[in-house]
Computed example of a mutant assay.
Amino acid sequence: MYQFEANENRRDMRLYFYSCSVTFFALILCTPQSTMAQTLAPFRYEAQAQRHCPVDTVVWLDFRSGRYYLKGQRRYASGHTGSFVCRNEARDSGYRRSLLGLR
């Protein structure tokens, strides 16, 4: 009798686990791409970033200040705490445009 109850409890636990995991993956797969966080792909060289996003503008992202700089600004490609990224990815990740040094 006890063996039967233990097997039944194990079966119920497995069913609960599988139903939760199926629900989780269904939520992930059915979520529109616009609401999911976009990953930020930092690059060491400007040409690498341009190949990654050929239709987007490449910017210099300063991780310390949380700002990105456009080509032509004073701080573009300067400093050790930054990388080249695509502008849309930087915007979607919460980084802001710097107004300093606009020409």
Score class of each variant (00 low, 15 high):
M1R: 07
Y2A: 12
Y2G: 07
Y2L: 13
Y2C: 01
Q3D: 11
Q3L: 10
N7W: 03
E8G: 00
E8V: 10
N9Q: 14
R10L: 13
R11H: 12
R11S: 11
R11T: 10
D12G: 04
D12K: 15
D12M: 14
M13A: 15
M13N: 09
M13K: 11
R14Y: 07
R14S: 04
L15Q: 12
Y16I: 06
F17Q: 12
S19V: 05
C20N: 13
C20R: 11
S21K: 08
V22G: 01
T23M: 10
T23C: 08
T23D: 03
F25K: 01
F25Q: 10
F25L: 15
F25V: 14
A26E: 06
A26Y: 09
L27M: 14
I28Y: 10
I28W: 08
L29V: 13
L29A: 15
L29R: 09
L29Q: 09
T31E: 10
T31D: 01
P32S: 13
Q33K: 14
Q33F: 08
Q33Y: 08
S34F: 13
T35D: 04
T35A: 07
Q38R: 14
T39K: 12
L40W: 01
P42F: 03
F43I: 07
F43A: 02
Y45E: 14
Y45S: 05
Y45G: 00
A47T: 12
A47M: 05
A49S: 15
Q50V: 03
H52T: 02
C53I: 06
C53E: 03
C53M: 03
P54M: 07
V55G: 00
D56A: 05
D56M: 05
T57Y: 04
V58Y: 02
V59K: 02
W60D: 01
L61S: 04
L61Q: 06
L61A: 05
R64Q: 15
G66T: 08
G66R: 07
R67Y: 15
Y69F: 15
L70E: 14
G72W: 09
G72Y: 09
Q73K: 05
Q73P: 01
Q73Y: 09
Q73I: 09
Q73V: 09
R74F: 11
R74M: 07
R75T: 06
G79K: 04
H80I: 09
T81C: 02
G82P: 08
S83N: 11
S83M: 05
F84R: 01
F84E: 01
C86S: 10
R87E: 10
R87F: 02
N88P: 00
E89K: 03
A90L: 03
R91D: 13
R91T: 07
D92M: 12
D92I: 00
Y95V: 01
R96A: 08
R96L: 14
R97P: 01
S98K: 08
S98T: 08
L100Y: 11
L100V: 12
L102P: 00
L102C: 05
R103Q: 13
R103F: 04
